[in-house]
Design a protein around this nucleic acid. Structure first.
Lengths: 199, 199, 199, 199
DNA sequence: CATGAATGAGTATTCATTCAT
DNA sequence: CATGAATGAATACTCATTCAT
């Protein structure tokens, strides 16, 4: 019964490894099949094509990551500790995923690109909610600099300080650069705040 | 100058545009040749293969960028204005280049990968020197928080606050994660400094 | 009668429909199995391979057709009415079957091709017998132009005027063209007889 | 210069032979390339894909055929001789082409199917014009049975007596069967006229 | 008997690179 | 130098057939 599920998982895990290592277009189904030690045709019994397999790999990886992050933060108490974890935990994941995400944006047919963006927006939304919770905690405890409490502060933090890979989903680069323009002052402000002498 | 030099430049410019737009593996020599309006074989008179052409495109783009940045900052006076420019100017470039750099890291044979890294280290070194000059200016004017004046502060700033794409050159991800571990405290420190209330 | 016979028939009917619609090579066993709502492997319990299934479908369809035609003609009285029916009834069937027959001739391994031809010759023989009966009726009533009463007149009529698909079974095209040469005079004769003014 | 044209022709001729022998879907590009003794990739320098190669083969064959037929008939004098040739000459071609045409109708993507139909309609139009010319000659000489001089008599002759393969281009089989219904009386009439005793 | 997962040979197509002219 | 035809290895995907359960 669960044998089929197990094999699907096996293929998915192998594919995830190879996609992470070599990227979407440089990973062939031959390689995935060989590494899973099954026939090429068998892969197609579980995933209708390469793009869907890739999508499944991305989805699984993101879900795993988010669950880990959520439990990790829930186990901590103080505002500073939670924020610390929120910054530290995702970095490795971001670095591992980013290249694949980026490359896929250039390799995938438009329909998948759209689904990929939608999926990432959902992921981004969950990350923003979590960050908002943490910052609210800090704000309630009177720890936060109030002139940073603008509506899109969470977005700026997520995108710029946490290397949120959602940036890289940008398809319309023009719009993206407009956003940079808008956010830039806040980035510089936080950065200079952070390095300039107090008093 | 000479006709040959001009033609080489023409190919290089076309290739740069196309590589930037579609990435390394999704840009074919057929397209480059067609866009340059020369024969495909002619490209091979100027560049021994696709990888070398890509390397040359990267090199040229970085040089252009660095020269622009350098002149821009030299024209400004105050520490804050220079730092502001140092943060703002590269962002667009970084975003435009990053995907290509990343994809190339997965597409290029090892020999080129090594050269690519060496080249990028050189670029990184020039960026670090420029940043050091600017921070020295701030430090000399007594503006900088002194407990941030550690040796590798410039590296941290370059990599994390400026989206220095040198990060993404990481081949040995283990070593890279060690470095994250090391730098992490400083990132959090600056970030919390920046967002926490003073006093 | 038995359950097994019913299931065999179910598969055969589905296969016949699909082969008629999409041709031999464009109909996959997956589709046949799905349309029959049984497992693909089950088909192989009833038919040893795709070719045999196709042969059975052809055989069944031809038998059905021949029985309908025979009964139809037996119910009519006059020579002209019978001949009329003999021309009219097969046309639709011929058009529906021809493409599949043709395609199968190019798709089937030689062993099946031979059996297919043998089978078609049998069908052709039954058709010729029926036509002979009808023409004998006309001849006996003194209706037929006697210089057309040569031995192979029935063959010519069957092949050329009734779109008898047996022509298309030709494997050895050389022999077939010889036959055309032989028959041609008769075809032209009937045709010109039919369109030229009398008197 | 003409070397490219010659090679294109070589490929086209080989393809025509193989398509004629094995049909569209059972002829692989590997086989075509091997039979032409060139590399598979080379075929793609001359024809963008298998369908276009097939279309080119059909087109060439039809043009050749039509030119031969036209010259042949122009060289003859009497009405009967011309009509004789019009019936006799196309038969071999029709038999050679029909199977391929039919199979392609089941194998080609819709865009090509449309082009194929358009092309065949043009071919059909040329055949009809030629037949009209011949029949006008007969009519002017008072040779033709006048109650057959209806408008669509040429079409009927072309489709039913000459095995005009245009029939087989039928995509909408319903409409086609309607046409059979309509034409049927005329077919029977000519046929019975042809075989029944005069007087 | 019924199932459907596993197989692997086969197919069209792409593209970096070579080389004769 | 310039050309562009020729090459062939590589790739995603299909499908008839087998076989363990």
């Amino acid at each position: 019964m669960s044998n089929a599920q197990e094999k699907r998982q096996l293929i998915l895990d192998t594919a995830t490894k190879l996609f992470s290592k070599y990227g979407f277009s440089k990973t062939s189904l031959d390689e995935i099949a060989a590494a899973t030690q099954i026939a090429k045709g068998t892969v197609y019994n579980y995933f209708p094509n390469k793009e869907e397999l890739f999508m499944a790999a991305v989805e699984q990886k993101n879900n795993e990551f988010f669950n880990i992050l959520y439990r990790h933060i829930a186990a901590l108490d103080s505002f500073e500790a939670k924020l610390h974890a929120f910054v530290q935990v995702p970095i490795k994941t971001a670095y591992e995923n980013m290249p694949i995400m980026l490359e896929s944006l250039r390799s995938m047919p438009f329909q998948y690109l759209k689904r990929l963006c939608e999926y990432r927006q959902n992921y981004r939304y969950r990350m923003l909610s979590l960050l908002k919770e943490i910052l609210d905690l800090g704000r309630n405890q009177g720890l936060l600099n109030e002139d940073l409490a603008s509506d899109n502060f969470c977005e700026v933090v997520l995108d710029w300080f946490l290397l949120g890979d959602s940036n890289f989903m940008v398809v319309d680069i023009e719009k993206f650069l407009e956003r940079i323009e808008r956010d830039h002052e806040m980035i510089i402000k936080v950065f200079l705040h952070g390095i300039l002498k107090r008093g």
